[in-house]
Amino acid sequence: MNKREDVKKTYKLYIGGKFPRTESGRYFKWTDPKNSTVVNMCRGSRKDFRNAVVSARSAFSGWRSKTAYNRSQILYRIGEMLEGRRGQFMDELILQGASKKEAENEINQSIDRLIYYAGWADKYQQVFSRVNPVASSYFNFSYPEPTGVVSAIAPDEPSLIGLVSIVAPIIAGGNTVVVLASEAKPLCSITFAEVLHTSDVPGGVVNILTGYRSELLEHFSSHMDVNAIVYCGNVKEEIKFVQENAALNVKRPIVYTDENWLDKKVQDPYRILNTLEIKTTWHPVGI
């Protein structure tokens, strides 16, 4: 009996709701810890990032003006889709070096985190909005709005829940995002893009690149049409570099160091607030 050969998956980028190869044509070899599998990952370029920002910017007005209820349902849908594809993530996480138990835990937590932020998508506004008692004949209220396009450097590991933990609050808040996946364990990030793709997330709301952090950090932090950057990691030089570049257009730099991404303590609505702006409106009260 002939042995059937596997059909191997090509890992591409996820930009504007499509799965293009990198425009640069470059790749980097990713090998699993056991040296059993070699994958050619796209080595995303500055131009890929630029294209992703263009997609994110054009998706922004549609995404922010969706009803909160709708955004909430879409986030919930991502959780549902992830649940449905556990097998695929199990395989990849294990291939990336996790034990079966670890992989299972990470997937469970990732799904739960999505559901957690899905629930917040139509509630944080109430927690962070207020009517301000001004001492004049005005009705004055403040409410949060998304800050715009966010670039994000996902933690190296854990790579799935790390990605989920930063993307979910960003998009729950009505922002769009371009995220750089874990360089060390990139497989499940692209598979996560497939989940997004089948979850009613409009194209361009989440864009995922793979590539070298050292190469792309500059562009993620300096692009003038990016309103905030989320950096996960604890490399001091990188943090300084990101924060310096953020000054170019007064980007909001948000830095998460040494987070235990598998802990429920890293989830709260203040993480949504980090990429929100408070708008205050005044209106006279009279006839």
């Binding site: 301000n132 008692p133 001004v134 001492a135 004049s136 005005y138 004055n140 403040s142 800050t147 715009g148 309103n227 257009n249 007064v250 909001r252 702006e277 408070i278 708008k279 205050t280 409106t281 005044w282 209106h283 006279p284």
Partner: peptide
Amino acid sequence: IRAGVLWANTFNKFDPASPFGGYKESGM
């Protein structure tokens, strides 16, 4: 309007209870 303070049918009103601050290059 992408800005932190919106005065509707008024302008340049301030109050201690009213948050003030900018979007984009107007600050954080």
